[in-house]
Computed example of a mutant assay.
Amino acid sequence: MLDGITAIAFDIDGTLYSSPEFYLRIIPHFLKNFLFYIKYNKIRNVLHHTAPLPDFYEYQARLFAELTGSSVEDAKKKIQSVVYDGLETYFKKIKPFKYVEETFRRIKAAGYKIAILSDFPPEQKGDIWGLAPYCDVILGSEQCGALKPSVFPFGILAKQLGVKKEQILYVGNSRKYDVLGAKNAGMMSAYIMPLWRRIFHCPLKEADINFSNYRQFAEIVIE
C-alpha cells in the first residue's frame, strides 16, 4: 500500500483506453465535421485556462457562437450533436486497456476508494466498460465549471470522496492536465507511459509513479 494514500482516481480518455485506436475509429466523423472541430478545439484551449464558471456549458456555447457567428442556442445544439452525442457511439466499440478491470477489482479489494475525473462527461462512456460499479465517485470537470489542469475540479473530487487531497493518487496520460494538474492540487500522480517512453525507458520525471500497464500499476500500489 502507498503511504498515506487512501483513494485512487483516474482520468478516462487516453488513460483507460488507447487514444490512437479511438482516433482511428472517428476519422470519418472527424472529416465530416472537420471545420467544426478546428473551431471547437480553439475554444477548448481557451476553456482549459479559464477560471471556474457558474455555467460551463453556457460559456462554452458563447465562445463557440462568437467564433462562428451563430446564436448561443445553435452553438449549444451543435456541440451537443457533434461532440457529446456524436462521439458516444464510438466509445461502445472501444475496449479498455488490458488488465484495467482486474486492477480496479484488486485495488478496491485492497481497501482504496476509487474515483473517475474526466474532462468530458463520464456518462458518455456508459458504465465505463464495467468499471463504474467499482467507483465511489464519478465526476466530469465540465460539471465542476473548470477543465483540468485547474485545481478546482481536483478539489471537488477530494471533497466528494471525503478525503484530503494529499491522500489521493491521480492517474492520467497527460503531463500538463493530469500529472501537473494533480500535483498543483496537492495530490500524488501516476503516469501511464506511451509506447515511445516505454521503448526508450524515458519515465516522466514530474510523476510520482510511471507505469507501462495496469497489472504493473496494481503491483506498485498494492505491494
Score class of each variant (00 low, 15 high):
residue 103 T to Q: 00
residue 20 P to T: 11
residue 39 K to Y: 03
residue 83 V to T: 10
residue 36 F to D: 10
residue 23 Y to H: 12
residue 105 R to M: 09
residue 90 Y to K: 07
residue 44 R to F: 07
residue 65 A to E: 08
residue 124 Q to P: 02
residue 135 C to E: 03
residue 103 T to D: 03
residue 127 D to W: 04
residue 126 G to E: 11
residue 71 S to C: 12
residue 118 S to E: 08
residue 60 Q to D: 08
residue 19 S to Q: 13
residue 63 L to K: 04
residue 142 E to L: 05
residue 101 E to R: 14
residue 118 S to A: 14
residue 50 T to I: 06
residue 102 E to K: 15
residue 56 F to D: 03
residue 31 L to R: 14
residue 36 F to V: 07
residue 18 S to K: 04
residue 97 F to W: 10
residue 58 E to F: 08
residue 79 I to Q: 10
residue 145 G to L: 06
residue 106 R to A: 15
residue 32 K to V: 04
residue 117 L to Y: 05
residue 66 E to D: 15
residue 139 L to I: 06
residue 41 N to E: 13
residue 70 S to C: 05
residue 106 R to M: 08
residue 37 Y to S: 06
residue 7 A to C: 10
residue 146 A to C: 00
residue 57 Y to I: 01
residue 35 L to N: 15
residue 80 Q to I: 03
residue 43 I to M: 12
residue 64 F to A: 04
residue 78 K to C: 09
residue 74 D to A: 15
residue 92 K to E: 15
residue 38 I to N: 11
residue 28 P to L: 13
residue 114 I to W: 00
residue 17 Y to H: 09
residue 95 K to W: 00
residue 96 P to W: 05
residue 127 D to C: 05
residue 44 R to P: 00
residue 103 T to L: 08
residue 23 Y to W: 11
residue 115 A to I: 03
residue 99 Y to M: 03
residue 50 T to A: 11
residue 143 Q to L: 01
residue 93 K to S: 14
residue 76 K to D: 05
residue 31 L to A: 13
residue 41 N to G: 15
residue 50 T to N: 03
residue 114 I to Q: 01
residue 138 I to N: 03
residue 114 I to C: 13
residue 41 N to H: 12
residue 64 F to W: 06
residue 30 F to R: 10
residue 116 I to F: 05
residue 119 D to P: 00
residue 43 I to D: 04
residue 135 C to M: 11
residue 37 Y to R: 08
residue 57 Y to H: 14
residue 6 T to K: 15
residue 143 Q to I: 12
residue 36 F to M: 09
residue 125 K to Q: 13
residue 125 K to P: 00
residue 26 I to E: 09
residue 145 G to W: 07
residue 93 K to C: 01
residue 29 H to W: 13
residue 117 L to F: 00
residue 50 T to K: 12
residue 85 D to C: 00
residue 148 K to H: 07
residue 43 I to S: 04
residue 33 N to S: 11
residue 142 E to T: 14
residue 148 K to D: 06
residue 75 A to K: 02
residue 32 K to W: 10
residue 103 T to P: 02
residue 17 Y to S: 01
residue 123 E to F: 13
